[in-house]
Design a protein around this nucleic acid. Structure first.
Lengths: 158, 158
DNA sequence: TAGAACCTTGGAGCGCACTCGAAGCAAGCG
DNA sequence: CGCTTGCTTCGAGTGCGCTCCAAGGTTCTA
């Protein structure tokens, strides 16, 4: 419940850096739209709802592509990083294991030769998502039946 | 992935014991359709895909309403129990915490006075399910865009 | 009636995804 | 100058949902 305060879209920025505003019908992230593309960790905490601990942990396990540092070694996140975090957040909500997301991050770091593998990974994830949605539909039907039962029972009790 | 080999419906059996075949358009559970309404734990393992360990653990934490025993103390599950386990499986797939399911089990044991609370709990769960489905739809859209990108890139590479 | 297979219990252990703590460096402010 | 706030690192701790173990009793098949 404390996970996604943000709703910005994660776009193909990591695939094609030349068109970072591609498909930006929905403005990806208005905060600091100026040139100041260097957020502190606490700003990212405010944007994403993640904790600073978690952000640092993501980096340790290889889930962040690469985070810039200030001249004194402090993290400076770019809009690119925020978009990546948004994608990670979405994938996390699908139940994708962190290890798989790390794998994807590695592929992204691996450059264009990994396009095929990335495609496969995302396609598999897509299948998972569809399956989960079907399960949820099933469950919703059961819930609705039970809820209907209790509603009826409540209207004419004893 | 090792979770739901079964697809039987969990019906209102616990709410209204007099109509255990209510709404059984889809036959709830054909195995042993005879009077032998007393499955061993290993049979339940085969039906549900859960492990015996997990079944015993469910009972310990109060997630099973009550399981009969043979004269020598071994568990004997009824069709009612199987239906309950099916509901639990569905709720688990929605991400509902086990503690909440235990709460629901307690309400069921509490009898008709708890109908209102059960309604509230299920209604809240329903809201969660809808929210999750919306999140999944979002994620699916992002995945589709990315997958489309990689598919195009794959068709005309280098 | 022997042996294999299966069941019982309580408690310990595991994997995942964080979550926190401690010790220390750096920046900004009255 | 001292103080507060925020950042750094690494490693240990937490909560959840199982998962497994040991030691023993039971049930089934031949």
């Amino acid at each position: 419940m404390t996970v996604t305060q943000n709703t910005a879209v994660a776009i193909e920025a990591e695939e094609d850096p030349t068109r970072s505003d591609f498909c930006s019908a929905e403005p990806p992230r208005p905060p600091r739209p100026d040139g100041r593309d260097a957020y502190t960790i606490s700003e990212v905490v405010a944007f994403t709802g993640l904790t600073a601990h978690t952000l640092r942990w993501y980096e340790r396990i290889g889930l962040m592509p690469h985070v810039d540092r200030s001249h004194t070694g402090q993290r400076r996140y770019t809009n690119r990083d925020l978009e990546w975090l948004d994608l990670v957040g979405k994938l996390r909500l699908t139940g994708m294991p962190v290890a798989d997301m790390v794998r994807y991050a590695e592929l992204v770091r691996g450059g264009e030769e990994t396009y095929g593998e990335r495609y496969e990974l995302l396609a598999a994830t897509r299948r998972d998502v569809l399956e989960r949605m079907a399960q949820l539909r099933d469950t919703l039907a059961v819930l609705d039946r039970k809820i209907g039962f209790y509603a009826d029972a409540g209207h004419r009790p004893a």
